[in-house]
Design a binder for these strands. Structure first.
Length: 470
RNA sequence: GGCGCCAUAGCCAAGUGGUAAGGCAAAGGUCUGCAACACCUCUACCCCCGGUUCAAAUCCGGGUGGCGCCUCCA
């Protein structure tokens, strides 16, 4: 299994530190608003990475944080005459709502910054003691000159950063070097704060992740992931903090997802061209959003558009139709063993599994993996049409189940239709069948329309009339 | 200015040396009472120019176009 490691800029064979176990940390959102589609990408992508690792037999400990201390949250709270805690609690709940909709499984742990304050203070203290940080009037800075490897992830060096004429590099006279960054900042009037040896204050952004990763996963982790815009400075700074403090490699593999763009421009809060997941979910089912995200390779940019979403919805529908049809076929098929011919064809079925795994083994190539599912879908449709044996159909169903399950797409939901409605629907279908027999097509079509109005789709098959919601 | 990524059909998208997967859309056909679903058929001088090679979408050089990071961001 190969993964692309940003640290080495190469695909590498994946070998976890401890056999059979994977420790994984994914940077989570700052919770001051609904998550947008750009936030949804790492959610879905790394959830899929996790699912595949588990499919491959690894025991995965997956940590994704919530940043619940931040200027943006404070601003929002002030604007709404609320508190930081109230705002972050609200949007954490909303983020879970969206994540659930996107079929993103809960992480093993979802730590919050506010719950880690003691450990944050502790790590800052340690960095000062070890000579990697210094304090000035209640602000603690990380001394980037003290960490020789600074820039190894983003392939930047300090001189270039300084000479590059970046507007923000030198703002603060108290910094020893323009590239130094804040670990702890003093309290401002009216803002939440926590006690520390340097006075009341709150942590800088980067230190949080170093602390939460260490607390929940240990000094060294296998995979650290996030959006590619986090490579610099966030992840670079995390490495500087963690490796200086812990004295060992922080993360073995660094995975970064590409952006979602709109009109070929990065979608971002500052550009104001972003869509929240909630907005999109009002027009397309959540599962289409997930499918859309997995339709390309996770490192490539995806240009978001309504047309593309529609195309994805149609494609997903194709897969789901095949699954429904196969299920219906199996439910109504007589007991039957595989024929000899089918037994030889089982090998062909295994080929899909192998192709799927080869695609996913190659740096989680979900686009390729989905194309294998489409091929399996055609295989299944043909099998149903050919009225294969039940035993054989079950084998196809099992395969489809597994492959779709790894990606978390095209999963069939349990019918929520009551028994009362079910008998009503079946009565109508019976009436329609009678009408068709009597060649009263007008009546038959009227019943079909009536069912459609109830949200029921019907399909005429050789085994009778199949119906389902949606 | 520094660093980096990308360019494959109307659209999306795999493919990193052996002669272009898959999906959406469009078109024709089969099935159907008509539909829907499904199945079959059909759609590519791989951005341009050079080079290496028996062989290049793929490797090298040079263009052109687009994007990202360097500043809060997924």
């Amino acid at each position: 299994m190969k993964v692309y490691n940003t640290l080495t800029r190469q695909k590498e064979e994946f070998v976890p530190m401890e056999e059979g176990k994977v420790k994984m940390y994914v940077c989570g959102p700052t919770v001051y608003d609904y998550i947008h589609i750009g936030n949804a990408r790492p959610y879905v992508v790394f959830d899929t990475v996790r699912r595949y690792l588990e499919y491959r037999g690894y025991e995965v400990t997956y940590v994704q944080n919530f940043t619940d201390v931040d200027d943006k949250i404070i601003n929002r709270a002030n604007k709404e005459n609320s508190t930081m805690q109230e705002i972050s609690n609200r949007y954490i709940q909303e983020a879970f709502h969206d994540a659930d909709g996107l079929n993103v499984r809960r992480a093993t742990m979802h730590p919050r910054v506010t719950e880690e304050m003691d450990l944050i203070v502790q790590m800052v203290k340690e960095l000062i003691e070890k000579g990697f940080a210094y304090e000035d009037h209640g602000t603690v800075y990380y001394d980037t000159k003290k960490f020789p490897d600074y820039g190894k992830l983003s392939r930047k060096n300090l001189d270039e950063l300084i000479a590059g004429g970046s507007e923000r590099v030198s703002v603060d006279d108290a910094k020893k070097n323009p590239t130094d960054f804040v670990l702890w900042k003093p309290k401002k009037e009216g803002e939440p704060s926590w006690p520390s040896p340097w006075g009341e204050g709150r942590p800088g952004w980067h230190i949080e992740c170093s602390v939460m990763a260490k607390h929940h996963l240990g000094d060294s982790i296998d995979i650290h992931a996030g959006g590619e815009d986090l490579v610099f400075p966030h992840h670079e700074n995390e490495i500087a903090q963690s490796e200086a403090c812990n004295g060992c490699q922080f993360a073995k593999y660094w995975l970064h997802n590409g952006f979602i763009t709109v009109d070929n421009e990065k979608m971002s809060k500052s550009l104001g061209n972003f869509f929240t997941v909630r907005d999109i979910a009002a027009q397309f089912p959540y599962e289409v959003i997930r499918f859309f995200i997995l339709n390309g390779h996770y490192r490539s940019p995806i240009n978001f558009s309504r047309e593309l979403m529609q195309a994805c919805q149609n494609g997903l529908e194709r897969i789901k139709n095949a699954r429904k049809e196969l299920d219906f076929f199996i439910q109504n098929a007589p007991e039957g063993r595989m024929t000899d011919e089918e037994k030889t064809q089982t090998e062909e079925l295994m080929k899909y599994k192998e192709q799927f795994e080869a695609a996913m083994d190659d740096d989680f190539n979900t686009a390729d993996a989905i194309s294998v599912i489409y091929e399996l879908v055609r295989f299944s449709n043909i099998a149903v049409k050919a009225q294969v044996s039940r035993e054989y159909a079950l084998k196809i169903q099992d395969m489809l189940d597994h492959l779709c399950g790894v990606l978390g797409v095209a999963e069939l939901t349990e019918s929520t239709i009551s028994d009362e409605d079910t008998s009503k629907i079946e009565a109508l279908i019976e009436k329609r069948t009678e009408a068709k027999k009597a060649k009263d097509f007008a009546a038959a079509d009227a019943i079909r329309d009536e069912l459609a109005a109830m949200g029921i789709t019907i399909k005429d098959t050789r085994q009778g009339v199949q119906w389902f919601r949606g």
